[in-house]
């Protein structure tokens, strides 16, 4: 848990659209250590997927990294040439995408897709690549891998496809795996299988896992540390148990409250976060959450809150959570 693998400093990714500049990721910094699982949670549009695509340098053309640095093992990822990127992607860092059915090529057999990966990145001969691929399929729990090797993606169920993608991501022994909502498209029972598999493989290989999700239950189950994102910024980051026991940011409270849980009273109104997320073209001049925050003060509309470390390892960006003031959850905001 000590060896630093991935470091992102003050990453800013903007999308240059005809209607303005959308600040999809606006100053995000984090570190990822060996064997660690970092959870990233937030609503859709909070920039979690864009950030993950920046890490693996797969950003769409309209988006540009305008500032910041990404360091993998001390090397500057942003200065990599196309050729270096080829080696970086897949070999050092690999990615598991959200929708298993669409991230495999429908016209190629899964075996061929896996072998392509192995032959390019590990330079294996065909026969050997096949052996490794079948072994990888077996390790993710696909029954009868020799036969499945010849299957097309449409012949497999969603859970099986996701296993194939996990096998592909892992067969090059990547040291960092970025999983962008790996279980969102799957049923709960299959989700449980996939998560258990990821955990097991992580224990075996010591890879670092960045798990992007909007399901807090998955975070509780899997992660060591968690980062809460809102409108392109990190609003809170802490160890999982700290975040659960002592969340500090009003947005995190809202997120925790709005999940119906199995232990809560049935049929009672859930607490909600009023309003909608802000337009990303207009953020960056104040606290992005002020219009939905029940605790907002005039200062929140004037200054961008800094991410400050209140307790060791527990950082929060809120004007009302600093050394001089502590806001309590559920406290009367004073403005309804």
């Amino acid at each position: 848990m000590d060896e630093l693998i991935l470091e992102v400093n003050n990453l800013k990714t903007y999308f240059f659209l005809a209607s303005g500049v959308a600040k999809a990721v606006d100053g995000v910094s984090f570190q990822l250590h060996k064997g660690e699982t970092l959870g990233v949670v937030g609503e859709s549009g909070s920039g979690k997927s864009v950030m993950s695509k920046c890490v693996i340098r797969l950003l769409e053309k309209v988006g540009r990294i305008v500032e910041g640095e990404i360091k993998f093992d001390g090397q500057d990822v942003l200065s990599f040439s196309e050729k270096e990127l080829m080696a970086y992607r897949g070999q050092d860092v690999s990615m598991i995408f959200q929708d298993p059915m669409t991230s495999l090529d429908p016209v190629f057999r899964i075996g061929d897709q896996m072998m392509e990966n192995l032959r390019i990145h590990r330079g294996l001969e065909k026969a050997e690549a096949k052996k490794v691929a079948i072994e990888a399929l077996r390790s993710v729990g696909i029954p009868n891998p020799e036969a499945r090797f010849e299957a097309y993606p449409f012949e497999l169920s969603g859970g099986m496809c996701q296993r194939v993608i996990i096998a592909m991501a892992l067969c090059c022994n990547a040291r960092v795996v970025v999983a962008d909502e790996p279980t969102t498209a799957l049923d709960v029972t299959v989700q449980a299988q996939v998560l258990r598999l990821l955990k097991k493989l992580q224990k075996e290989t010591g890879m670092a896992l960045m798990l992007i999700t909007h399901n807090l239950g998955v975070v509780w189950d899997m992660c060591d540390r968690v980062m809460v994102m809102y409108a392109g910024k990190i609003v809170e980051t802490a160890a999982v148990k700290d975040l659960y026991a002592n969340p500090l940011h009003p947005y995190t409270w809202g997120l925790l409250d709005s999940m119906p849980s199995l232990s809560s009273q049935r049929k009672t109104a859930l607490k909600t976060i009023a309003g909608t997320p802000p337009d990303l073209r207009l953020t960056g001049t104040c606290c992005n959450f002020y219009n939905r925050c029940p605790y907002a003060r005039p200062i929140c509309t004037e200054q961008v809150p800094e991410l400050v470390e209140l307790e060791p390892g527990h950082l929060v960006a809120c004007h009302r959570q600093c050394k001089s003031e502590t806001l309590k959850r559920g406290e009367d905001g004073g403005n309804g």
Partner: peptide, 18 residues
């Protein structure tokens, strides 16, 4: 099905029935 639901807190340990 119930054992497959992700836990409600990081302190909860579930018995997995697969």
């Amino acid at each position: 099905l119930l054992s497959a639901i992700p836990p409600a807190s990081p302190f909860e340990k579930k018995k997995a029935i697969e």
